[in-house]
C-alpha cells in the first residue's frame, strides 16, 4: 500500500505534541484511522495513490489538527506527570530501604567482625582482593589482619570473607566448607570460623588461623560443589 502522503500528514499533525509518550499515543491512534480510511478507498476501487490522497483529504488540514492537538497535549502536564511518577517510585524505594534497614535480621555494622573479648588485633587491617566462584556464590577475601588470642597469647591471622549471591532464595551467609590454609613453605593449617554478619545479598564471615611466622603468602582452600577452590593471600613481610 502506497501511504507516503498519509505518513506525511500524520507527521505534520502530531508534530506539535512535544511530550514524546503523548505524541506516540496520538500518532498510533491517528495512524489506525488513516490506514482504515486508505483501505476503505482501496476496497471502493481506488488506486493506491488515489486512496492515499483521498485519505489525507478526508482527514482535513494537518496544520489545523496540529495546532489543536498541541493546545491539548501540552508538554508541561506530560513532564509534570512523569516527575510525579518518579517521585512516587522514589518515595516507595525510600520506604522499602528504610524498612529493610530497620529489620533486625540485617546488620549494617561494616566494621571488622573481631570478637574483642577473644582477640587483640595487632597493626592495621590489610586490604586484599582475591575472589573465587563456589556454586551460586562468589567468595571474596576482603581484608586480613594479624592478631593474638588473649587467653593463650598465640599469634593468628584473621581473614574477613564476603560471600555474595544473586539468588534471593539462598542465604547469603554461606558456610565455608572445610577451609584449609597452606603457606608459602608448604605448612598446612586448619582454619576456624568465628563471627558472621548478614547483609542484603551479602554475608560476612571471619576466619582465623594459628599461622607460624615467616611465610610470604598463603593459599586458602575451600571445598566448593565442583571441587576445591583456592584464594591467594598476600602476607606482610616479617610478620606472620
Amino acid at each position: 500500500m502506497n501511504t507516503n502522503r498519509s505518513m506525511a500528514w500524520l507527521r505534520e499533525a502530531v508534530g506539535g505534541i512535544k511530550y514524546p509518550p503523548d505524541r506516540r499515543k496520538v500518532e498510533k491512534e491517528l495512524y489506525t484511522h488513516i490506514m482504515q480510511r486508505n483501505r476503505d478507498f482501496l476496497e471502493a476501487g481506488c488506486t493506491e495513490r488515489d486512496a492515499d490522497e483521498k485519505a489525507c483529504e478526508a482527514m482535513g488540514d494537518p496544520v489545523e489538527v496540529r495546532r489543536d492537538l498541541a493546545a491539548i497535549h501540552r508538554p508541561f502536564w506530560g513532564y509534570a506527570a512523569f516527575i510525579l511518577r518518579i517521585l512516587v517510585i522514589g518515595v516507595f524505594l525510600w520506604a522499602l530501604i528504610s524498612a529493610l534497614r530497620s529489620s533486625p535480621r540485617i546488620v549494617y555494622d561494616l566494621g571488622p567482625l573481631v570478637d574483642e573479648n577473644r582477640f587483640t588485633v595487632s597493626g592495621e587491617w590489610r586490604s586484599q582482593d582475591s575472589r573465587i566462584r563456589c556454586g551460586d556464590y562468589t567468595i571474596r577475601l576482603k581484608q586480613t589482619a594479624y592478631g593474638k588470642e588473649k587467653e593463650t597469647g598465640e599469634s593468628c591471622l584473621l581473614l574477613e570473607l564476603r560471600t555474595f549471591t544473586a539468588d534471593p532464595f539462598l542465604d547469603p551467609l554461606w558456610f565455608i566448607y572445610q577451609p584449609v590454609l597452606e603457606d608459602s613453605r608448604g605448612l598446612v593449617y586448619p582454619v576456624e570460623q568465628s563471627n558472621s554478619r548478614n547483609l542484603v545479598f551479602t554475608g560476612r564471615r571471619l576466619l582465623f588461623v594459628y599461622l607460624q611466622p615467616g611465610a610470604d603468602w598463603a593459599v586458602l582452600t575451600i571445598q566448593g560443589p565442583d571441587g576445591p577452590e583456592r584464594l591467594t593471600i598476600r602476607l606482610e613481610e616479617g610478620r606472620a
Binding site: 489545523e64 489538527v65 489543536d68 492537538l69 491539548i72
Partner: peptide, 30 residues
C-alpha cells in the same frame, strides 16, 4: 473508536455531518 464515530455520524445525518476526520481527535482528547 474514532473511525466508527465518523462513519456513524455521516450515515445517521445522511452525509450532512461529514467532518474532517482529523479534527475529531482534538475534540475527543479535550
Amino acid at each position: 473508536y474514532g473511525y466508527e464515530m465518523v462513519t456513524e455520524l455521516a450515515s445517521r445525518s445522511s452525509e450532512v455531518f461529514q467532518l474532517k476526520e482529523g479534527t475529531l481527535y482534538p475534540l475527543l482528547h479535550r
